[in-house]
């Protein structure tokens, strides 16, 4: 597994909220250049915390990376402020509060373009976004607060692209959207990867759609990585099938005791 050094590497990262609550512990993962990596887990498993730790958002919730390193292109970016991380080439599309609702679509995009860009560059960059998401072009002058869920997601991804990231982090894209829309958005993600050469880290609860486009995947539970592997390996894994793909063999769900057992047996992963 040691070919080229990965674009993003988390080494045994631990995040502690308000100096007491440990949200994630010993999380290690690699994201290779040009890949789409999926990060799976249930509610409260630590997916979002991991993403926020990478993008520097956690500091505002009084949470800090207390152990381990977050290496982006070889540089430790743990506990950097969000703005610095963004300038370094990582853009985050958060789960909630991802667009400026009181601004128009155009203003949302304008506000996201780097400060130094000239008028012409800005226009060119925004036009690229419209090429990717033609639906946004038709809604240019509308207030972002009145957009539909899918359009909001497109606008959020579009404005994240304007920061010219090399790594795009997308949190819970499928949240509250119809499966068909999610599929459409995932297609966009694949296109972005191909045309812009972006590396993408997707965080998802619904595994079946996300695994479909992923090159590699991680499963996090209770703040620890419990499983990782290629799309084929994860998709074929018994536990993933049962817990995330809902293909449990006949007899409903396992009892809580068994689930606990499952976590314990994989402790060595941390």
């Amino acid at each position: 597994m040691t070919e080229s050094p990965p674009m993003l590497r988390l080494e045994k990262v631990e995040v502690v909220y308000k100096k007491v609550i440990t949200a994630i512990q010993g999380v290690s993962l690699d994201v290779q250049q040009g890949q789409i990596v999926v990060f799976l887990g249930t509610n409260g498993a630590g997916k979002t915390t991991t993403l926020r730790a990478i993008s520097g958002f956690i500091g505002t919730d009084d949470a800090w990376v207390t152990e381990g390193r977050i290496l982006f292109e070889g540089q430790d970016i743990a506990n950097w402020p969000p703005q610095k991380v963004a300038n370094r080439g990582i853009a985050l599309v958060p789960e909630r509060e991802k667009i400026f609702e009181t601004l128009t679509v155009m203003d949302n995009l304008e506000a996201s373009v780097g400060a130094g860009a000239s008028r012409a560059t800005r226009k060119r960059m925004i036009d690229t976004v419209f090429d990717h998401f033609p639906r946004l072009a038709t809604a240019k002058t509308r207030l972002a607060g009145y957009l539909s869920g899918g359009e909001r997601q497109m606008l959020a991804i579009g404005s994240a692209l304007l920061c010219e990231p090399r790594l795009l982090l997308v949190d819970e894209m499928s949240m509250g959207l119809a499966p068909r829309l999610v599929e459409e958005l995932l297609d966009h993600i694949v296109t972005l990867k191909k045309t812009l050469g972006l590396t993408i880290l997707l965080v998802e609860q619904s595994a079946h759609l996300a695994l479909g486009i992923a090159d590699y995947g991680y499963v996090i539970e209770n703040g620890r990585i419990v499983l990782d592997g290629t799309r084929e390996r994860l998709g074929g894994h018994k536990d993933v099938q049962e817990f995330y793909l809902g293909q449990g063999g006949g007899d409903a769900r396992k009892s809580y005791r068994e689930v606990k057992q499952y976590r314990r047996s994989r402790r060595w992963y941390g």
Binding site: S55, F57, T60, P81, P82, Q83, V85, A86, N87, A91, L92, P94, E97, K98, I99, F100, E101, T102, L103, A111, S112, G114, A115, S159, A160, L162, C163
Partner: peptide
């Protein structure tokens, strides 16, 4: 409107 998001989008 959203200071954090703004920071993430590179606004100082």
């Amino acid at each position: 409107e959203r200071p954090l998001l703004a920071a993430q989008r590179g606004i100082k």
